[in-house]
């Protein structure tokens, strides 16, 4: 390591070495004065990308009717089998969707779901969609069977289901 031929070479190496060390110190110093990239999560929430696959929702059309026609393609296409659909016929007195049939029961097990988005792809009516809601933590396992009523309510993006802290804000990227 130190088999250097001449004193000048030694001096050169020393100068270069010290310069390198100081450059390193400079880099960390620059890091120190630059603003931190950390976002303090519960207070500050990122706006997720539009195609982010978070929680499922069922959509309605412009007339307020459900898009889901109860074809069960989502359930058939689900790799983990977390979707349960039971279809029923629409009638004159009880018109739920624009098609012949509608989903009488539509349940998704959010704990079993792997959020792959295949249900969304399989759906011919764009009835089930995955949106940017990622705050799915809860204290009760039973809450994770999302039924039709829950899937049809569409909360504002990135809000706690219960605003525990009362200081929820959304940051634009």
């Amino acid at each position: 390591m130190f088999k250097l031929q001449s004193v000048t070479q030694l001096a050169n190496e020393t100068v270069v070495g010290v310069k390198n060390l100081l450059t390193g110190m400079g880099v960390t110093f620059k890091n120190m004065i630059s603003p931190p990239t950390t976002q303090c999560y519960p207070e500050i929430k990122r706006e997720m990308p539009a195609r982010y696959r978070g929680r499922h929702f069922l959509t309605r059309n412009s007339e307020g009717l459900e898009n889901c026609v109860g074809c069960e393609l989502c359930a058939a296409n689900c790799p983990v089998g977390c979707i349960h659909v039971e279809a029923a016929e629409n009638s004159e007195g009880n018109r739920v969707s624009k098609g012949e049939r509608y989903a009488r029961v539509y349940e998704i097990n959010l704990l079993r779901c792997i959020y792959c988005g295949y249900c969304e792809e399989a759906c011919p009516e764009d009835a089930v969609i995955l949106r940017e809601h990622y705050e799915l933590a809860n204290y009760d396992r039973d809450c994770y069977i999302a039924d039709k009523e829950e899937l049809l309510t569409y909360p504002e993006p990135n809000q706690f289901r219960v605003n525990y802290l009362g200081n929820t804000t959304v940051v634009k990227k």
Binding site: T28, N31, M32, S34, P36, T37, T38, C40
Partner: peptide, 13 residues
């Protein structure tokens, strides 16, 4: 705290 700032993060807060 300082280590956090040197690594462009916040440190314990």
């Amino acid at each position: 705290r300082l280590m956090g700032r040197f690594q462009v993060r916040l440190g314990p807060n």
